[in-house]
C-alpha cells in the first residue's frame, strides 16, 4: 500500500498528520506531505485508511 497527498487540494486541515504522523508530515504552511515515498508498512494500513477517510478535502489517495 502507498499513500499520496494532492498538495493542490490539501487545505491544511491537519487531520492526517494527527491520525498518522508515521505516514504524513506538514510543511511550514501546514500543507500535508507524505513521508518518504509514501509506502505504508502493513501494521500502519489501518491508520492510512483512517487518514484517508477523515480528510475533509478528499486530498489523500490510497494506492493498493
Amino acid at each position: 500500500m502507498r499513500v499520496e497527498v494532492d498538495t493542490d487540494t490539501c487545505q491544511g486541515h491537519n487531520r492526517c498528520f494527527t491520525i498518522a504522523p508515521e505516514l504524513f508530515d506538514v510543511d511550514d504552511f501546514g500543507t500535508a506531505v507524505v513521508i518518504g515515498d509514501g509506502s505504508v508498512p502493513v501494521e500502519l494500513e489501518d491508520k492510512a485508511r483512517l487518514a484517508e477517510a477523515n480528510c475533509p478535502e478528499f486530498a489523500i489517495k490510497i494506492i493498493e
Binding site: Q11, G12, G30, L50, A53, N54, P56
Partner: peptide, 20 residues
C-alpha cells in the same frame, strides 16, 4: 466516530487559519 470528514473549519481555500 471513526469516519468524520466534517467541515467545522470550513471547506476549500478559506479553511480556518487558526484551526490548529
Amino acid at each position: 466516530r471513526q469516519v468524520n470528514r466534517h467541515g467545522a473549519f470550513g471547506l476549500g481555500i478559506h479553511r480556518c487559519l487558526g484551526s490548529n
